[in-house]
């Protein structure tokens, strides 16, 4: 790892990280502020009972007790919207590093210095990881901070247990996005390929509720290991799921190293 390149990559993306962080905080505030009203609507549980059970899986909610703060935040935020926002951040980051630097020609400047390709990939991957950790921590601190300010009863251990889960999910996505960044010439294709695979994993998870084949295949997708409602409810870090997500990340990262070490670098 090259510390200077790591710092430069983080610095290049700090504006983007700040914008995404700010956007997440705004969304968190909106969601949290909505919760007391939602909780107090009479008959909301009966209404939700009428929704197909599997439909709620689309929003990451397995339980029908959506009036709990944890389930509400999952359904409104962490189950889908938050994933979309942070995935956009990860894809933008992955687009701008290897493939973006080759496309812009700056990789030639970088590789004309005494720095190995291994070091370039590692430094830039760690910069993505730093961005991911920042956004996940900002999200959770926002939820518990705004929640506490609004007098909502919060199961802190549950939300803090979500931090490693959120980080590992995004690292898994970053792993294959980085691989696409080392494989493809056009940065736009990096985004399309990464977004396509993420969507495919998500649809596989959703389809698993209705289709047995998809349910069996779901273990090969990342969203099988992402169940925010259960983590927040129980306050337990699901070690098995974390390891599975980290395995996705490790495979993507290792493959990126192998590919980039052999790749021609020319704009």
């Amino acid at each position: 790892m090259n510390l200077n390149l790591f710092k430069k990559t983080v610095s290049d993306r700090w504006r983007s990280t700040a914008v995404f962080g700010g956007g997440i905080l705004a969304y968190v505030l909106m969601t949290t502020a909505l919760y007391p009203t939602f909780r107090d609507i009479s008959g909301i549980e009966e209404l939700l009972d009428k929704y197909p059970k599997d439909f709620l899986r689309l929003f990451g909610v397995e339980s029908f007790d959506i009036t709990s703060f944890g389930n509400f935040v999952t359904a409104e935020l962490l189950g889908l919207m938050w994933v979309i926002i942070v995935v956009a951040f990860v894809l933008g980051f992955a687009r701008s590093v290897i493939a973006g630097e080759i496309h812009d020609g700056t990789m030639e400047l970088l590789l004309s210095q005494p720095i190995s390709r291994w070091s370039v990939v590692t430094s830039q991957a760690l910069a993505i990881a730093a961005g991911i950790v920042t956004l996940v921590v900002v999200t959770v601190l926002g939820i518990v901070g705004f929640g506490a300010a609004l007098g909502i009863e919060i199961f802190y251990r549950g939300f803090f247990a979500f931090i490693p889960v959120g980080i590992c999910l995004l690292l898994a996505i970053a792993g294959y996005s980085l691989l696409f960044s080392t494989l493809l010439k056009d940065p736009r294709r990096v985004v399309m390929a990464s977004a396509g695979l993420t969507l495919a994993f998500y649809m596989l998870h959703f389809a698993g509720a209705y289709w047995r084949v998809a349910d069996r295949m779901d273990v090969f997708g990342i969203f099988h290991y992402y169940n925010p409602a259960s983590v927040i409810d129980s306050g337990t870090v699901p070690v098995g799921s974390l390891l599975a997500l980290l395995a996705f990340a490790a495979v993507g990262f290792t493959a990126s190293l192998v590919v980039f070490r052999r790749r021609d670098v020319a704009p």
């Binding site: 812009d104 020609g105 700056t106 030639e108 400047l109 590789l111 004309s112 210095q113 005494p114 720095i115 190995s116 390709r117 704009p267």
Partner: peptide, 17 residues
């Protein structure tokens, strides 16, 4: 490659900075 780069100053044809 890394050892070579220690010995070389390189100006690309179309410098991208």
């Amino acid at each position: 490659s890394v050892d070579v780069k220690r010995l070389v100053g390189y100006l690309p044809g179309e410098p991208a900075l």
